[in-house]
Amino acid sequence: MTHDHDMTLVLSRVTARFADEKKNSIPTLKDISFSLPKGSFVSIIGPSGAGKSTLMRIILGLMQPSSGEIIRNFKRPAMVFQNYALFPWLSALDNVAFGLRMDGAGRHERERVAREKLREVGLAHLENRFPAALSGGQRQRVGLARALAISPDLLIMDEPFSNLDTITSEALKSDLLKIWRSYGMTILMVNHLIPDAIELSDQILVMGAHPGRIEKVLSVDLTRPRDTRAATFFKQVDILTEDIRRTLE
């Protein structure tokens, strides 16, 4: 039996509404209930308009739900954005150190940690570059290093691979898994590729749209490390893809 304190996050019957141009109240999320076990890697999959980004913002406290209950057993959330959201006026090093600076860490300490995180994501040699002079993959790595620098206990990732080419996203996925294992944090990732979700996650939340709701919670029963070229992996992808397709039909 699991208890709430074993969970990083518990949502029960969370509903969010927004007012359209005619001031009608439109539900964007309806009765969302799920929980994230501590240290788990959970993916959310769903069509456009399912309210995935709204859900992320509610979890992070950037938006208030209209109703429902949220138990947040995390202290330091961090986020990696689809569009990187790096501060263009700061170098890679200063972007990574930003959260520590806001926490009041001294220059020496925050730069030491930022350099260490840049090294972990393989960008130590680019610490003085500004975001405009980095490729998409490099920017996403800086975004990941910025998140890791504040030692998060919950890392939320909003389609982190969608703007990257295949080779870059494969490399980043492999680094992400290593980082997740070594940090032991909980990861909640919005993803639109089912094989990626299966490769990375313990659980997949399937969301439907209009209004956004959880249609199904799928467990990924593959042992780690997962070999994405193994027959068992392909079989699991087939089964879950079919399941998700039927769910969303």
Partner: peptide
């Protein structure tokens, strides 16, 4: 996203203005 990043990484309250 940039606004959210600033908030999540701690640029809240008065700190939001200079940083």
């Amino acid at each position: 996203d940039l606004n959210d990043a600033a908030t999540i990484f701690g640029a809240r309250g008065w700190k939001r203005i200079p940083f």
